[in-house]
């Protein structure tokens, strides 16, 4: 398999996942704000922070903060972290590797792209937002379903999965980072709205139901963090994503360097299960996890995409 093709398939996986997660997070965040009174001080700008894009956000200007954030994160094709842009990037990467991926997945991602360009503008209107984002999520899942259901599990598939797993782990860590940030800022919040924030974190990664089934019915901050970081059964928990990334690397030729990085994450996640994950520490831990995931990405690039870059 050509390195270039591998890289594009990997990015297809990442962008598809990013698109789906962006839609989920924005959708859930809109719901959350309806539950929190203004004096809590949780605003739309926090959402930009989740995406690590505070420095690129141009600010509200003429429009309300809500509209500005939604344009920035959803509908503006010129914004580097918008949903519509992620979908376009997924499509462009897939277009370059059409011969490797099932024809239906290409058709499906094309339809998704056309839908996104047409419909996402209306997410600034809160009456339409939920429905449009739901359709976006459903279409992302449709593409994913075609890939899972019709693709041989050779190298292209493993690169797709690898990109998807790393992106998903990264997104989950960002959701947790923000959910616990309010608590850090005002410990009092945890008493009043702890379960609302925990529920939001879970719902942002569609983990609410599985948490209740596999963990406990009560929403407790620390157990939520524990679940979203260390659970190996829930597919959006970080440990679970890391395991899938390890599996993909193990099926690819010469993946020792990325595997070493992934093993290090597993090792760290496994330590001190009781007291490591208090809300106060979460932010530092998430920063570290994001750094480690960045190292995995570097190792992947170096191993498979630009192996001769340092010649």
């Amino acid at each position: 398999m050509l390195s270039r093709a591998a890289e594009r398939v990997y990015w297809t996986g990442r962008y598809l996942e990013r698109a789906e997660n962006t839609a989920r997070i924005v959708q859930q965040y809109s719901q959350l704000l309806l539950d929190l009174p203004d004096e809590v001080g949780v605003g739309w700008d926090e959402l930009v922070t989740i995406f690590g894009a505070a420095s690129e956000f141009p600010g509200a200007g003429e429009v309300s903060e809500e509209v500005a954030v939604l344009r920035f994160l959803v509908s503006d094709p010129n914004s580097g972290c918008s949903l519509v842009r992620s979908i376009r990037m997924a499509r462009d990467n897939m277009r370059n590797t059409r011969d490797l991926l099932p024809q239906e997945s290409w058709e499906s991602v094309n339809e998704l792209d056309q839908f996104a360009r047409r419909a996402l503008v209306s997410t600034v209107d809160d009456e339409d937002r939920f429905e449009v984002l739901s359709e976006c999520i459903a279409r992302c899942l449709q593409v994913d379903g075609i890939l899972v259901g019709t693709m041989s599990h050779g190298a292209p598939y493993q690169f797709l999965r690898l990109g998807q797993s790393l992106e998903r782990a990264d997104m989950t860590s960002r959701v947790l980072d923000v959910a616990t940030a309010y608590v850090r800022r005002d410990p009092d919040l945890i008493d009043r709205f702890g379960s609302v924030l925990g529920t939001n974190a879970l719902k942002s990664v569609s983990g609410f139901q599985m948490y209740r089934q596999y963990c406990q019915p009560q929403i407790e901050g620390e157990r939520v963090v524990e679940f979203l970081v260390r659970d190996t059964l829930f597919p959006r928990a970080i440990a679970s994503c890391v395991n899938r990334a390890r599996f993909a690397c193990s099926r690819l030729p010469g993946g020792e360097a990325p595997l070493d990085c992934l093993d290090r994450i597993v090792e760290h996640l496994g330590q001190d299960p009781e007291d490591d994950l208090t809300a106060a520490d979460v932010s530092a831990i998430m920063d570290r996890i994001q750094q480690w995931l960045g190292q995995v990405h570097e190792a992947v690039v170096h191993t498979w995409f630009t192996p001769d870059a340092d010649q």
């Binding site: 398999m1 050509l2 390195s3 270039r4 190298a155 690819l252 030729p253 630009t306 192996p307 001769d308």
Partner: peptide, 18 residues
């Protein structure tokens, strides 16, 4: 970008296996 000419004046393509 998939191809390069090495010092041995031979052409190689960049693959995931080298």
């Amino acid at each position: 970008g998939d191809l390069f000419v090495d010092d041995d004046d031979c052409v190689y393509m960049r693959t995931i296996e080298g």
